[in-house]
């Protein structure tokens, strides 16, 4: 966790810039479509009551991602 970290490590209220996606195939596309592209700013709004998934604000919309999917988004915390 020295330099970059992944989206699932982001705490509620934390903001970060997307660095790259390690997701492949359709999920990569999906994430890009939703606004998770290099340089996009995301913030974590919180976790669902059972701990997973978490809600992220990206490009003015709110998207919930499961932890194992959020792990595929590499980010640099702000």
């Amino acid at each position: 966790m020295e330099e970059g970290t992944s989206l699932d490590q982001l705490r509620a209220g934390g903001r970060a810039l997307v660095e790259e996606l390690s997701a492949q195939g359709p999920m990569r596309r999906r994430l890009q479509d939703l606004g998770f592209v290099t340089g996009a700013q995301v913030s974590c709004l919180g976790n669902s009551p059972l701990g997973d998934p978490s809600a992220y604000s990206v490009r003015g919309a709110v998207v919930a991602l499961r932890r194992r999917d959020a792990r595929l988004v590499k980010v640099r915390p702000l």
């Binding site: 939703l34 809600a55 919930a64 999917d69």
Partner: peptide
């Protein structure tokens, strides 16, 4: 395995 999914939470 459960597949990946992204759920939108509308305003």
């Amino acid at each position: 395995m459960p597949s990946s999914f992204a759920l939108e939470l509308p305003p």
